[in-house]
C-alpha cells in the first residue's frame, strides 16, 4: 500500500517534470524568433558599446585597447557638456510645449463633436511625415530670403529674422518644428485618454456644481494618469535622441547652439573618425535615458498608490 503510493508519487513527479519541460519548449518556440533579433541587434550592441568605450579605431585601422582614455576625453571635452545641455534644454522646451498644446487640442476635440473626424485627420497630417521631411518643409517657412514667415515679418519690420542662424533662436526654433510635427500624435493620444474616461464622474461633478475647469483639473487629469505615465516616459526617450531635424536644419550650428548628443555621436563616427569617443558619449546617453526612465517610473507609479 505504502510502496504503491510512493510509485504513484514518483510517477506524478515524473509527469510534472515532463509537462514542465514540454511547456517550456512550446513557449521557447514562440519566443525564439523574436529573441534571436533582440539578442543580436539590441542586447549585443549595448554590450559591445560598453566594450568599445575602452577601445579606439576600427573603421580603417583595427581596434586597439586604450583603457580609460575615451572616458577621460569625454569628460574633458567641453562640447560634450554643451551637447548634453542642449539635448536637455531642448527636451524641457519641446515636451511641455507639445503636451500643453496637444491637451488643449484634445479638449477642444472632445467638446466639438461635429466634424471631429475631419479635424482629427487634418491635425494628424504633419505627424505622418518623417521628421526630416517636416524639417525640410519648415525651411520654406523660416528661410531669411524666401521663408513664408519671414516674408510676412518683412512687411512689418522690413528686416527678416534669421531663425536658424541666431544662436539664441536656433534651438527653440528646432523645438517648434518638432512640436508642429508631434502635435497631432499627442493630441490624438490624449483625446483617446479623455474619451476612455467614465462619463458618470463628470455628471456627478457637474451636479455638485463643478465648472468645466474644475472638472478637468480635479476629475479628468488624475484619471488620465496611465496615459500621462506612458506619455512622459515615451516622450523623454524619443526627444533625448533628437537628431533628424538638427542634421537637416542646422547641423549643430550656429556655434554649436543646436549640437545634440546623438548629433555628436554621429559626427564622431563619420566626421572625426573617433568611434571609441563616440561610443563613450553614446554609452553615457544610454545610461542617462535608462536612469531617467527608472526615476520617472518610480515617481509616476509610486505617486498613484
Amino acid at each position: 500500500m505504502n510502496s504503491g503510493n510512493r510509485i504513484a508519487e514518483a510517477e506524478h513527479r515524473r509527469l510534472k517534470a515532463s509537462y514542465k519541460r514540454r511547456r517550456n519548449i512550446v513557449a521557447l518556440i514562440f519566443l525564439l524568433p523574436n529573441l534571436v533579433f533582440f539578442l543580436g541587434f539590441l542586447l549585443l550592441p549595448v554590450i559591445s558599446l560598453f566594450w568599445q568605450t575602452f577601445h579606439d579605431g576600427g573603421v580603417l585601422s583595427p581596434m586597439r585597447f586604450v583603457g580609460l582614455e575615451n572616458w577621460r576625453k569625454t569628460f574633458a571635452d567641453p562640447l560634450v557638456l554643451t551637447t548634453i545641455r542642449n539635448t536637455i534644454v531642448y527636451s524641457l522646451i519641446a515636451i511641455p510645449a507639445v503636451f500643453l498644446l496637444a491637451m488643449i487640442v484634445a479638449l477642444a476635440m472632445r467638446t466639438a463633436q461635429h466634424g471631429r473626424s475631419f479635424f482629427k485627420a487634418v491635425i494628424y497630417f504633419p505627424t505622418l511625415q518623417p521628421v526630416l521631411i517636416a524639417a525640410l518643409m519648415w525651411t520654406f517657412v523660416l528661410h531669411p530670403d524666401f521663408g513664408a514667415l519671414n516674408l510676412v515679418i518683412r512687411i512689418f519690420t522690413g528686416e527678416p529674422v534669421n531663425f536658424l542662424g541666431d544662436p539664441n533662436l536656433a534651438l527653440p526654433t528646432i523645438a517648434m518644428v518638432e512640436v508642429w510635427k508631434g502635435l497631432g500624435f499627442w493630441a490624438l493620444l490624449f483625446f483617446a485618454g479623455l474619451a476612455a474616461l467614465p462619463t458618470e464622474i463628470f455628471q456627478a461633478a457637474e451636479l455638485d456644481g463643478a465648472g468645466p475647469v474644475r472638472r478637468f483639473f480635479q476629475h479628468a487629469l488624475p484619471l488620465m494618469k496611465p496615459t500621462f505615465f506612458f506619455s512622459v516616459i515615451f516622450a523623454t526617450i524619443v526627444n533625448l535622441q533628437l537628431f533628424d531635424s538638427v542634421f537637416v536644419l542646422t547641423d549643430g550650428g550656429p556655434s554649436n547652439a543646436t549640437a545634440t548628443a546623438t548629433w555628436y555621436v554621429y559626427r564622431s563616427l563619420f566626421t572625426f573618425n573617433e568611434p571609441g569617443f563616440g561610443a563613450t558619449l553614446a554609452f553615457v546617453l544610454v545610461a542617462v535615458v535608462l536612469v531617467l526612465t527608472a526615476v520617472q517610473t518610480i515617481l509616476l507609479k509610486g505617486g498613484g498608490k
Binding site: 549595448v46 558599446l49 576600427g58 526617450i237 546623438t262 563616427l269 563616440g278 544610454v286
Partner: peptide, 20 residues
Amino acid sequence: VLLMSVAIPVAALIIPLFFL
C-alpha cells in the same frame, strides 16, 4: 528585461550596429 529594453535609445547604438 524586454520592458526595460524599450527604454534603450536606439540612436545611441549606431556605432556598434555599424560595426556589426
